[in-house]
Amino acid sequence: MKDLKTICSENITALIVLIFAVVFPIFNSAYKVDQFTGFYVTCLLSFSIILIWGYTGIFSFGQAAFYGVGAYTYAIISLCSDKNLTILAALAGIAIAGVFALILGYFIFYGGVNEIFTGIITLCISIVCETFIVQTSGPEWKILGVWIGGYNGLNNIPKIKIGNFVLNGVPLYFFVIAVVFLVYFLFRKLTHSNMGYALFGVRESKQRSELFGYKTAKIQTLAFGASGALAGLGGVLFSAWSGYVVPSTLSVDNSTVAVVMVALAGRKNVTGALIMTLIYSYFTHQLAASGNVFSNVILGVLLVLIVMFMPEGALVELFKKADMLLEKLMGKKKKTA
């Protein structure tokens, strides 16, 4: 990815998306604004996959699990008392998801286990987490006095409240897009920072990077923890936006959708992921396609095809082609000037 100062198709697109996001509430109903808030929240899950898979080269099925941990933590803490604990709940959600990921990462990466096995381990953990919550239907399962809710999940989760101000509707929308674009901006900075290059080195060849002085196990573990925290942030905002959380929030299906979106756009490109998540979420909503019985088949086949034929991602290819066109146009301008 080029840096933020270059004029290129990616940066232009990002700017357009930013403008689109900011003016959206002016031209759309409250319902639509609320709907899109949810789409932007999902972007955080996609970003966490870019961080761990695209940047660090570790494939994790567990991102939805961390997303779910964030969502459930926020729900439980904000529900457990009559006082307004929502801000604490939000921070706790991020922290617990992050710590969970760090600990898991420690066991995986300091042992030096094959990155591929991370896929297996995170898949098993996701399955176990989801099954655990579904099976714990009985009211004897309480954390902080709040029943986990089993199959039905938790309802009436309070919105984030700062003082007397409740984050709902349009203010919540702007809060969420502020968070999303802040994270986006940090990602762009990361790509050109020492930390970013450390991740790329570990991704491209763990062994070789060791010989350039990188402590690869530490880097992998920290990246995994950060991506867990990021997914947790997404989960927190999901709870705070939707007001409910169900076991399927941390299901493997949820992870899969996000993985497909990221793979389709380009796993190493955060602008692509942002756009693809919005587009994909919008269309599946329009077509009520997520309830469609064929959706998983299409997703699965798509994933196979992308991995086989377009591993760099479709949007990334588009950006490249657009850049070539742009260069031609700018070249022409220089000649006529």
Partner: peptide, 11 residues
């Protein structure tokens, strides 16, 4: 890993 995963959910 990713491809066989895609296959598995489609199947």
């Amino acid at each position: 890993v990713v491809a066989t995963w895609g296959l598995s959910i489609a199947l």
